[in-house]
Computed example of a mutant assay.
Amino acid sequence: MLTGDHGYALFDPFRKACPGQYLNCGIAEQNMVGVAAGLAKAGFRPIVYGLAAFVPIRVLEQIKIDVCYENLPVTFIGDGAGVVYAQLGTSHQSTEDIAALRAVPQISIYSPCDRFELTACAQHILENSRPAYLRMGKADLGDVHRGPLTDWASGDLIPVTNTGASYLFVGTGSGVKLAQQAAAAIGNADVVSVPCLKPFPAASLRKLAEGREAIVTFEEHSIYGGLGGAVAETLMGQYLGTFVRVGIPDQFSTLCGNYPFLMESHGLAPEAVEKQIRRALDASIQYKR
């Protein structure tokens, strides 16, 4: 376990239990990735922890060259993804990490929505010997699933509800909770979660998308290059219905406040999301007429 001067209290139990397996590399994140690459070449399985604004964004070049180019089994954990570090401003928020890493070869990208998906993603990462990024928020929004996901394969979406409804709401990370709230408000919508964004579960999505009148994606990430982009790329040429991307618009956080305030300022409060989707659905109906 390597950290860049983060999470002292968080790692105290681990440091006491495994003192020889904990390394605080200080505020030198680029160097920390190089150390992790060296450890991986020596036969270890390094796990690199940092805020998502720093891991992967600050160390993108080192992830690309030191780890992915060598295809080394290094796991990167980006905590506080999205805008959950609301009071600390844009420097500590990460709304572009998925987009940045999707373009880097070799690396897998995971974005669990609750503790059960987190466990399943971690198990899958450790069963494979390739670079991986585990994206975590810190909003503590509660469970989506009722229990452990013992039969999940990373190549599949996870249906939260699958009744054959007209609309399909596709979420990742904290976006799954937002999708559930929107589905409850709008109705006639199934909700699915995407814990693994790369490799993207294209076959699973194409199957679930069949016959839907509208598809909406939900993510605490820029609308560019994240889940919405991956869904659009996958369904291009197959799906001709209404498509809506719910996420961070093309803007920085210019205000500080608590997490709900920041989500509201980016148009991601449940009421604003509901209005966005209803406008798109109404526009589609008018167009068809």
Rank of each mutant, 00 (worst) to 15 (best):
F76H: 05
G89K: 04
P105V: 00
P73K: 15
T90R: 05
K64Q: 12
V104P: 08
G89I: 00
I57D: 13
G50F: 01
C25A: 15
G43N: 10
V74N: 05
K64A: 07
Y49Q: 13
A103H: 13
Y22N: 07
A52W: 00
L88N: 14
Q62M: 07
Q21T: 02
P46G: 10
E96D: 15
A122P: 00
Q106S: 10
Q93E: 02
V84K: 09
L60R: 13
A36I: 01
V33F: 04
K41H: 11
E70C: 08
Q87C: 12
P19S: 02
R58V: 00
I107W: 09
A103L: 14
I107G: 06
L60V: 06
Q87M: 13
P73A: 15
Q87L: 13
S111A: 15
N24L: 03
P73H: 12
D79T: 12
I98F: 06
A81Y: 02
G20K: 08
Q21V: 01
I65R: 12
I98W: 09
I47A: 15
L23F: 15
I27S: 03
C121Q: 05
A17Q: 14
S91I: 00
N71E: 09
I27D: 06
S108I: 04
Y85A: 11
Q62T: 02
N71W: 05
R45F: 11
C113M: 14
M32T: 04
L39P: 04
P56G: 05
E70P: 00
D79S: 12
G89H: 04
Q106T: 11
Y69H: 13
Q123E: 14
I98P: 06
F54G: 07
Y22A: 08
T119D: 12
V83E: 06
V48I: 12
V48N: 14
E29Q: 10
